[in-house]
């Protein structure tokens, strides 16, 4: 086979994958699914609309951002650190899993049904919480902030209400994410 190949180094969920040989032009979602066995980042549309495939890009400046893996080539992630849905919960040495506050809230509130879009919502909400930690938002602005952060994500089962409410409640219950006044 004579496809042009590239070497990329990825750090996924804290694990460094030393140079992977990938064909030029492979999308990140395909590398996650077919090479790394991480299938939680889901293919919904393949053209960057539905956001079921987003991962979290941890930037060097300590900020984080959602990136759609269905339209972003693996080359972009060369040398970068990302978190996928499989790396959001914490697993201790004994293999016990502690869900993140967002995951726990989605579970508590029955936020999802089929769960196909859930990884995208978890990652979007996680990025939002991390942003609010750096720059808190007025309590009165929380609902609008949640809506803006999740608006791009498509859900077909539960009509968004339980996702949005869960994220709002986590934000309001987490010290340091909100301010009392504008």
């Amino acid at each position: 086979m004579s496809l042009p190949m590239r070497k990329v180094t990825l750090t996924v969920n804290g694990k460094r994958h030393d140079p992977l040989d990938v064909p030029e032009g492979m999308m990140m979602i395909d590398v996650l699914h077919e090479m790394l066995g991480l299938t939680g980042s889901r293919l919904g549309c393949g053209i960057g609309i539905c956001h079921a495939c987003v991962v979290i890009w941890d930037k060097d400046d300590k900020t984080s951002e959602e990136v759609q893996t269905c339209i972003t080539g693996v080359e972009f992630f060369d040398g970068k650190r990302i978190r996928t849905i499989e790396g959001i919960a914490e697993t201790n040495d004994r293999g016990e899993v502690t869900l993140s506050p967002v995951q726990q809230a989605f579970l508590d509130k029955f936020s999802f049904q089929c769960g196909y879009c859930t990884p995208g919502f978890v990652n979007a909400a996680t990025v939002l919480l991390e942003r609010l930690k750096r720059s808190p938002v007025a309590k009165a602005e929380v609902e609008a902030t949640v809506a803006a952060a999740l608006e791009a994500h498509i859900c077909r089962c539960t009509g968004y209400v339980r996702y949005y409410q869960a994220v709002r409640d986590v934000i309001l219950a987490t010290p340091g994410l909100t301010r009392d006044s504008a």
């Binding site: 030029e24 032009g25 053209i47 339209i71 972003t72 080539g73 080359e75 972009f76």
Partner: peptide, 23 residues
């Protein structure tokens, strides 16, 4: 080209042809 492949080709295609009715 490296940046194109990393950021653009997913939609616009490696050959830049786009997708009918879409991109």
């Amino acid at each position: 080209r490296t940046s194109y492949v990393a950021l653009c080709a997913g939609c616009h295609g490696l050959d830049g042809k786009g997708i009918p009715n879409t991109i």
